[in-house]
């Protein structure tokens, strides 16, 4: 993965980990990607992946007692969109398990456990890791093919 500074065009967004910001976050990322002339399907794929990552940060990373920030980095290079979503929450105990379809630690809250599965299905690559100083980073890429 390129360093964020090396992308042809990029933007950075930092927002409070609040549910009300979820729609704003995915819309901002999608709007930025419009410069690559993506199809509606590709835009919806990106919106869904961002929504899943941001939801995870708010619901699993933080709690009502501990709120924080979510940072979103978006870069574009050669028709590829790179998205990084970072939180400083509690992290994920077992990432491999969390990425399995229908796995959830909050089944009593009617969670489907399909968040990572949708991210993986809608994007070309997905990388998830715990940060050394706490929290989780989700990195995703998607090549926009409709404009080729």
């Amino acid at each position: 993965m390129d360093s964020f500074e090396n992308f042809e065009n990029k933007f950075y967004l930092k927002l409070d980990a609040k549910l009300i910001n979820e729609g704003f976050a995915r819309s901002m990322v999608a709007t930025f990607c419009v410069q690559l002339n993506p199809s509606i399907s590709e835009i919806n794929d990106i919106k869904t992946a961002v929504s899943e990552a941001v939801t995870n940060s708010i619901v699993h990373g933080y709690s009502k007692e501990k709120r924080g920030d979510i940072e979103i980095y978006v870069g574009i290079k050669n028709n590829v969109v790179y998205i990084k979503v970072v939180d400083l929450g509690t992290g994920i105990e077992d990432i491999d398990k969390a990425r399995q379809p229908f796995f959830t630690t909050k089944s009593q809250e009617e969670r489907s456990g399909m968040g990572f599965t949708l991210m993986e299905s809608f994007m070309d690559t997905l990388n998830v890791y715990n940060n050394a100083d706490g929290g989780v980073t989700v990195e995703m890429t998607k090549e926009i093919k409709s404009n080729l």
Partner: peptide
């Protein structure tokens, strides 16, 4: 116009 996995959870619920 938009639904993510949270919507799936609501329907399953």
């Amino acid at each position: 116009s938009f639904m993510d996995s949270t919507g799936i959870g609501v329907l399953l619920g």
